[in-house]
């Protein structure tokens, strides 16, 4: 079974499925229509090509060396790590990422940014989508209960965190409190200043005893 094609099918189905949940995404997708984005995520053995039309088709490109091709295999070609992917949303970071060799970029960056924007600006009203399946009341109740569960889980998590922190700091003394750490840091800073002053005094004395050593 061709694994790359299975993965590209999964990616394609997921992206188009998510886009279909936001009615306005098709308008934003029109701006990218006809463009191709070639992405080589370094953690994956094969690059993916995203072809934009009224939907997004994901192709597997067997040629990793495509960045050296002329003409390029797409309007925009990116080679980067998974950890760099979210940083692309901030266009001011791109030059820095290229200088740090975290990003190889050829072609029109606006295609990549347009794709990133398309996904980040998704506005999906899940309650409305659910209401078409189970009715307005069912959807409302479901989301109210989910909200209540979320609040309860958050409160419980906060409570457990507090218990563990207090137990570790106050009772078992296996972790220092934030105030103790700040105090320790202050003392280290004072000690560093004292050492620097001592060094300066020693240097001065050495110069007075043996003035010729400076020459």
């Amino acid at each position: 079974m061709p694994t790359p094609q299975l993965i590209s099918a999964l990616v394609e189905t997921s992206i188009n499925g998510v886009l279909a949940l936001d009615a306005k995404s098709h308008e934003r997708l029109k701006g990218l229509s006809g463009k191709r984005l070639w992405v080589h995520v370094r953690e994956l053995p094969w690059p993916l090509t995203f072809c934009f039309s009224q939907r997004i088709d994901v192709l597997v490109d067997s040629d990793i060396e495509a960045l050296s091709e002329t003409p390029l295999p797409a309007d925009c070609c990116l080679s980067l790590s998974l950890t760099t992917l979210p940083l692309l949303q901030d266009s001011s970071q791109i030059t820095k990422l290229i200088k740090q060799d975290k990003l190889e970029l050829m072609g029109d960056i606006h295609v990549a940014q347009g794709f990133s924007q398309l996904l980040s600006e998704l506005n999906i009203d899940l309650e409305e989508k659910l209401s078409s399946l189970v009715g307005d009341v069912g959807a409302r109740l479901t989301f109210q209960r989910l909200g209540a569960v979320k609040t309860a889980v958050t409160k419980k998590a906060h409570y457990i965190k507090t218990i563990i922190r207090d137990g570790a700091i106050e009772e078992k003394h296996i972790v220092a409190s934030p105030i103790a750490i700040a105090h320790f840091c202050d003392e280290v800073n004072m000690l560093r200043s004292d050492v620097e002053r001592l060094e300066a005094k020693l240097s001065l004395l050495e110069h007075q005893v043996n003035p010729s050593t400076d020459d």
Binding site: M1, P2, P4, S8, L59, V60, S62
Partner: peptide, 11 residues
């Protein structure tokens, strides 16, 4: 699986 075979063809 024929869908995966066809994807491979297109790729």
């Amino acid at each position: 699986i024929h869908r995966v075979w066809k994807r491979f063809t297109i790729d």
